[in-house]
């Protein structure tokens, strides 16, 4: 007998709370999560803390789809979480869905990346 295990999604915010071109940080089920509302409408959930020194990327810059940490100017591609400089690190990405204007994510099995850990 197989049991279908449904992934649990947690409510993060109303989509209206994060305007297109902006990012916002939320605490969801013990995870610090950055909701990125990219130009064009795509919404992405990434780890909110820079893998270098845990600085919140919500305190940094967001331009042309690139997230920049305020401390050492580390840069990440907001579409994928990939590190642009340095390239040997990344932001963890959370499964996300928008249901009736509500942003929901799953944190199951997602481990935030941290250098030197």
């Amino acid at each position: 007998m197989t049991v279908a295990v449904a992934t649990e999604f947690h409510m993060v915010c109303d989509l209206d709370e994060v305007w297109e071109g902006e990012v916002a940080e939320f605490e969801v089920a013990g995870h610090d999560v950055l909701i990125v509302h990219r130009a064009g409408g795509e919404v992405v959930a990434l780890q909110a803390l820079c893998p270098h020194q845990d600085i919140s990327l919500a305190e940094g810059g967001f331009e042309n789809g690139v997230l920049t940490c305020r401390a050492h100017l580390w840069q990440f591609d907001s579409a994928t979480g990939a590190g642009l400089n340095p390239t040997d690190c990344r932001l963890a990405r959370y499964p996300l869905r928008v249901v009736d204007g509500k942003v929901q994510i799953s944190v199951e099995g997602v481990v935030p990346f941290r250098v030197g850990a």
Partner: peptide
Amino acid sequence: LQRMLMLDLKVPFEQIHYDR
């Protein structure tokens, strides 16, 4: 300097050494 090296010139972070 940080802005010029990291953002304008895209110097790899590993090659830049400073304490803030």
